[in-house]
Simulated scan of single mutants.
Amino acid sequence: MTFDDEFDGPQGAPPQQLRWLHDTGGTGWGDNQLQYYTDDVANAQLDGAGHLAITAHQASQSLPCWYGPCRYTSAKITTRQPQLALFSQGYGHFEARLKMPVGKGLWPAFWLIGENLAWAGTDKAGEIDVMEALGDQPRQVEQHAHGPGLDFGGPTALPPGQSVSDWHVYAINWTPDRIDWQVDGRTTETLTRAEAGNTGWVFDHPFYLALNTAVGGGWPGDPGKMTVFPATMLVDYVRVYEIDERHTATTPAVSEGE
């Protein structure tokens, strides 16, 4: 294990600052999203029962978004921001146990972004979406990978009677030659280096972690009249392991006191 957060702590406490940082703002985040990401505990806090709650609210204060006063607030936490990498890793097993909100326009996710994003750009840095959920399609999980000319993946149906609003373990196994996506230990998608091609395979360097609950945007669309706020994504844990140390490039997690 190279990274682990079980989100133990008192109710109302923020996520550990030695593990997570906040992305903030109301820029639209590349997809005309409607939320303003804050660093307020109202949007990201421990629930006192061993979970992190990332909650989207209807905005009660005047915050500037790309379209005018923001209608929603939420949170996006990562293990990296410019000039400060708390944790990143290339290759390994990455997993989180999650429970998602449902409702049109909600878009929670657990994903990985290339550590070189700031200087390489979005495409060359790469993105691995361990899971995304569209709130109006609660029986489907979206799993993707993106690189130059690469838009891999799609929806995976959960077993009958199950929903993203139930607890599930979402994971990837990532090696130099392939990425396997899993839901509750069942492999659901596979991308090989050969399939991605020399240009599209940009998955040979460390990536950092991200968790967020987005609202609206070109893909999920705007919230509907039946969408209920507050809308909370619960995170039971996030864990990362090395699979084969001969092929792993790791920046260790920062521990207490460092």
Rank of each mutant, 00 (worst) to 15 (best):
I128W: 03
G197V: 10
L134V: 14
V202E: 03
D166I: 00
P159K: 06
V141I: 12
T213L: 15
P138E: 03
P155V: 12
G147N: 07
G161R: 09
P160C: 04
A171M: 05
P155F: 12
F152A: 13
A125W: 05
D184V: 08
V202C: 03
R178M: 11
T156Y: 14
G221E: 05
D177W: 04
P176M: 09
L158P: 08
R193G: 02
T188M: 00
D129V: 10
T188W: 00
T187A: 14
A145N: 01
G161D: 06
T156D: 10
K124M: 13
G153L: 04
G126T: 12
D177H: 07
D180I: 02
W181T: 01
W167S: 02
A133W: 08
A210T: 15
V164G: 01
A210C: 12
K124T: 11
V130S: 09
T213G: 07
W167D: 02
R178W: 15
Q143M: 12
T175R: 05
D151G: 13
T192I: 07
G200A: 14
D166C: 01
F203E: 01
D136T: 04
R186G: 13
Q162E: 13
G154I: 00
H144D: 10
G185P: 09
G200T: 07
L191P: 04
V169Y: 07
T213Q: 15
W181L: 00
V183I: 12
V183D: 03
Q182S: 14
V215I: 09
G126V: 09
T213R: 05
R186S: 14
S163H: 01
G126L: 11
G185L: 11
P223K: 00
P148K: 08
P160A: 12
P220W: 09
T199D: 13
A145R: 02
M131W: 04
F152L: 09
D204P: 04
Q182N: 14
I172S: 06
D184A: 09
Q143C: 13
G217F: 06
T192N: 05
A194P: 07
A196C: 04
F203W: 00
I179A: 09
A133S: 14
T188S: 03
A210H: 15
A214N: 02
R178F: 12
G126K: 10
Q140M: 15
G161T: 07
F152P: 06
S163V: 00
P148C: 11
Y208D: 08
H146A: 08
F152V: 07
V164Q: 03
V215E: 04
N198C: 11
D222C: 04
G154Y: 01
H146V: 05
T199G: 08
W167G: 03
L134W: 15
